[in-house]
Simulated assay, not measured.
Amino acid sequence: MAAEGILPSVGSVGDSFDNALAESVNSSYKTELIDHQPPYPGAAELSLATAEWVAFYNRQRPNGYCQDLTPDRAEALYYHRQRHPHTEEALR
């Protein structure tokens, strides 16, 4: 890309600000875990709450980007389809 004068990202290296899906997840995280909760007493408590939120987000929460499946289920279906490309299975 550099040889063609194309910049790979509009953000700084390592951030997700130019990725719509990541921005959506970041927004949900801030809204659900940070903005509407009392302040966490320390980094350890925030880390634990973050891990619990991520587990909920991936395992239980349907996501429109994943055709209203949980991210875990969408990933499982993706890899199943890679191993068995000619099978038809229900999305749920």
Rank of each mutant, 00 (worst) to 15 (best):
A3L: 14
E4H: 13
G5A: 10
I6N: 02
I6W: 06
L7N: 10
L7I: 11
P8H: 08
P8N: 09
V10A: 08
D15Q: 11
D15C: 14
S16Q: 12
F17Y: 14
F17S: 10
D18P: 01
D18V: 03
D18Q: 08
D18H: 09
N19L: 05
L21R: 14
E23V: 07
K30P: 02
K30W: 08
E32M: 07
E32K: 06
E32H: 09
L33T: 01
L33R: 01
I34K: 04
I34T: 04
H36D: 12
P38E: 15
P38F: 01
P39C: 07
P39G: 05
Y40G: 03
P41M: 01
P41V: 06
A43Y: 10
A44L: 07
E45H: 12
E45V: 06
L46K: 01
S47A: 15
A51H: 07
W53I: 02
V54S: 02
V54D: 01
A55G: 07
A55S: 11
R59I: 02
Q60T: 12
R61Q: 02
R61Y: 01
R61N: 01
R61T: 03
P62Y: 05
P62L: 05
N63L: 01
N63S: 02
Y65P: 03
Q67K: 15
T70P: 00
R73F: 02
A74W: 03
E75N: 12
E75R: 10
L77T: 05
L77E: 04
Y79I: 05
R81F: 12
Q82Y: 08
Q82E: 14
H84C: 07
T87L: 15
E88L: 15
E88D: 09
A90H: 11
L91K: 12
L91F: 08
L91T: 09
R92E: 13
R92M: 08
